[in-house]
Design a protein around this nucleic acid. Structure first.
Lengths: 198, 198
DNA sequence: TGTACATCAGTGAACGCGCGTTCACTGATGTAC
DNA sequence: TGTACATCAGTGAACGCGCGTTCACTGATGTAC
């Protein structure tokens, strides 16, 4: 096995174990000894690769967020009309959340965790170009009178807000959170919210 | 001083210190010794009142969430028309967030924290009647053709989603999050998203 | 192809500090008569 | 109004366990000649 492959394999096993332990404990940072037992990787090796316990959490966060963003980008790659873009964003965000509930939980649970601050630079580096591609894609559909002129920030929260809120409620074991209903009804409603005056 | 007053005063000092320490460390659960030093309350007394470290976090969460919900309820108390209700929800949610940024951060940071699970029952008890009053208020405006018929869950995420997302981005030190723009533009846009077909 | 060396990956025992929690106790408020 | 007792609020030293991190080391892969 090549060095790179060995390394990647080890990192993967550690991140898998970290995710499993998060699922069991709801803690985004897990005891390194436990992590070692579960992953079959020695404590020293975990430090060799991640530097610290929060380093593991930061890497896992980057991994999960990357997976979600890649899924979104792939999904809307072919879409041309605004209707299709919105529809695909909602559908892929929610279906990814459903199929990757633990990773999705990890993302939402980490949003305000201390390690996000510590590792802001590294995380941003991983995230930024995908976020920019997403933003550019949205931006390209704004204008021409079909979409109301608003600060881009307002467009973002109108589009992502309802979807993220639905996901969060479902992930919190939400009483009556119904992702199928959201998937069905949100796209046309979000479209209405950003449409220009006719 | 009466027993109740003494008790309340102690609890308040502890919760104040816990919030200040959260502001400094971003940790929702803080070392009890530190908490004692900052609040001027002994470790034993903290345990007497809160039972555990997560107990303090749970109490602080209930306190912050209660303050936000009370502010929302008060704000929309007099509103009669749907337009006014939406407008007031957005305005009061965002202005409360701005004026109580640390408490707001604590709320969002706690949403997926382990102690939420441990203390679910106690937290729900505090929260539920206010949530129900809010829900009832929203429900009362749905119907009569002015608002599109949708599962209530969908209405909720359409109304709260964009507002909460704007708040979260601003609280995360969000690059270009502009709460004033949100306060100005969100209400009519949210209204459009839930309006019935004309 | 082979040898010598460099670099990276992986190990796990050892350290020591900080943490959450307990507990026997004192002090203050409330209650009964 | 006063006394005796009960209940609750508050104290802080002591405990011991679990935690994150380090480090001297071995083993595997890569590189130079």
């Amino acid at each position: 096995m090549t060095r790179q492959a060995r390394s990647d394999n080890t990192r993967e096993r550690v991140l898998d174990a970290a995710l499993a332990l998060f699922d069991e404990t709801s803690s985004v940072e897990v005891p390194v000894k436990l992590l070692g037992e579960r992953s079959g990787v020695s404590v020293g090796s975990i430090y060799h690769h991640f530097g610290s316990v929060s380093g593991v959490a930061a890497a896992l966060y980057s991994h999960c967020m990357g997976a979600l963003l890649d899924h979104l980008l792939e999904s809307i790659a072919g879409a041309e009309r605004l209707e299709a873009v919105i529809e695909k964003i909602v559908r892929s965000y929610l279906s990814w959340t459903k199929r990757n509930a633990v990773k999705a939980r990890f993302i939402h649970a980490s949003a305000f965790a201390p390690f996000i601050g510590e590792y802001r630079a590294e995380i941003e580096k991983e995230k930024s170009d995908r976020m920019e591609r997403l933003a550019a894609l949205l931006h390209s559909h704004v204008g021409g009178g079909r979409v109301k002129e608003l600060p881009f920030f307002v467009h973002e929260v109108l589009i992502i807000g309802p979807v993220a809120e639905a996901a969060r409620r479902w992930l919190s074991g939400g009483s009556d959170a119904d992702l199928s209903a959201a998937q069905k009804h949100l796209p046309p409603r979000i479209l209405e919210s950003i449409r220009g005056a006719r």
